[in-house]
């Protein structure tokens, strides 16, 4: 049984956001992390020393592993930020700051 069926979810209509320019459909209420997991994406940043991929680890905002750029704001915790229609998500490298 999938999680939505388990709780008999009747979500509102899905909306569109972009991940690195690609459209993805998101159910209302989901965070960036939940939306990306639902898309099968499990990593969205690379570390600043070794350039290793990272995604969700603690899931509750403590570990800061899931940092991501949302609407041009770098280093947002994907597990905390809920999505709204039209949001732009960008994967990030290193410090998350350009230059």
């Amino acid at each position: 049984m999938n999680p939505l069926d388990l709780v008999r979810a009747e979500p509102g209509p899905a909306f569109t956001v972009t991940l690195d320019g690609r459209d993805i459909e998101v159910l209302p209420g989901r965070t960036v992390a939940a939306a990306l997991w639902a898309e099968g994406v499990t990593s969205w940043r690379t570390t600043r020393d070794a350039g290793r991929p990272r995604g969700v680890f603690c899931g509750i905002g403590v570990c800061f592993d899931c940092l991501v750029t949302v609407n041009d704001r770098p280093n947002q915790r994907a597990c905390l930020v809920p999505l709204a229609p039209g949001d732009t998500i960008r994967t990030q490298e290193g410090t998350g700051h350009d230059d």
């Binding site: 709780v7 008999r8 979810a9 979500p11 509102g12």
Partner: peptide, 10 residues
């Protein structure tokens, strides 16, 4: 679950 997900049986 976030309210937008409309869980009837959380």
């Amino acid at each position: 679950p976030a309210s937008g997900l409309g869980a009837r049986r959380p």
